[in-house]
Design a protein around this nucleic acid. Structure first.
Lengths: 187, 187
DNA sequence: TTATACCTACCAATCGTTAGGTAGAAATCA
DNA sequence: TGATTTCTACCTAACGATTGGTAGGTATAA
């Protein structure tokens, strides 16, 4: 079951980091979640920085896969775009967690270099997908699709942050609705 | 100089919290910034929770005053609205800091109750001001001014978070421009 | 016999916090 | 006025808890 424990650690660490950030992630609580002792984590990860980097890497890889699935499942780019906020909603539904990269963006000053890199890649993956879909959907001119993609990513992240601080998922929904009403997202 | 030290503590603690959050704020580093010893902080604040609550309270009070000044200095509501993003830009200009309440919104789960309250008030103050100005500017129907106010607040906070994670203030500016282009903010 | 997948037991550093002290200014009293 | 007390604004030194991390052991299976 060697790979199983590594997976469990990665999974539990992701959940903790989404709720408490890099700073709030500690080996003893994490180990207890997994059902092992803190020292055993070092069998799989040489340091907290390495674990967090692995967590953040896995996080954007999963996000990239989820977005590809969303593209594939959608009949057209506009409907894929419409469903984009769902990917961020999911974290709030699960014990009021938030985007790992959003949390770590706040903690940016205190992050190990390797973790910073993966956090940025998460943003890059989202912006690239949004940009591609915006271009295909022709909601903005091709030239403006990347700035618009960044704006959508930032706004959705902000909505998640605000909703979390109220522990109110309906606030997230009304914020997304307002973005649509204002013209930032397709109606 | 009794009130002077209290002010210095509040000021230094605000700066630290804007860069490292509630979790990253510690009495020894804070005391060194002020030029006193850690134990001396307890002469002014009974606990870290009390200090942080005082910091967050002062933070939204200053924000409220700054917004009133902005209203008073602006010829009309639309130009006040246009200048709203400047208040969030200022933190980034100063050593890539971010909104204290934005950071603490991420850390929400681990915040003492008294601090949570003040963090929420900061959001309330911003939304109330935006709502009032939006109504006066008639950019949206009076009924839609509060949802739109919340959307602007969340989006600007998200832009700040994203720009901070890139240490790139020009990214903040382009995000705000995109919000204007999309119709979320007046052009 | 050797590698795997853990474990116990500890370490040094850091954390919020407390106890108890002290120099000097201010207030009180003779 | 001068002596004495009290208060202000800090200090040193330590506490127990928690942190990331290490050294070295061990049961199980190949």
């Amino acid at each position: 079951m060697t790979e199983n424990s590594r997976e469990k650690i990665l999974l539990a660490a992701t959940k903790i980091a989404q709720a408490h950030g890099y700073n709030g992630l500690n080996f003893r609580d994490l180990a207890e979640d997994v059902g092992i002792k803190a020292a055993s984590i070092y069998y799989y990860f040489p340091s907290k920085a390495d674990l967090a980097a692995a967590v953040a890497k896995r996080y954007w890889e999963n996000a990239a896969a989820a977005l590809e699935t969303l593209s594939a499942e959608s009949a057209d780019p506009v409907s894929a775009l419409r469903r984009y906020p769902e990917t961020f909603r999911w974290a709030l539904e699960n014990e009021n967690r938030m985007c790992l990269s959003g949390f770590m963006a706040a903690e940016y000053d205190d992050l190990p270099e390797a973790v910073k890199k993966e956090v940025q890649t998460f943003a890059d993956v989202n912006v690239a997908w949004l940009s591609k879909v915006l271009s295909a959907a022709k909601v903005v001119s091709p030239k403006k699709s990347e700035p618009r993609a960044r704006a959508i990513f930032a706004a959705v992240g902000g909505a998640q942050l605000m909703a979390r601080s109220r522990s109110d998922i309906t606030l997230y929904d009304t914020l997304i609705s307002s973005y649509r009403a204002a013209g930032l997202l397709p109606a």
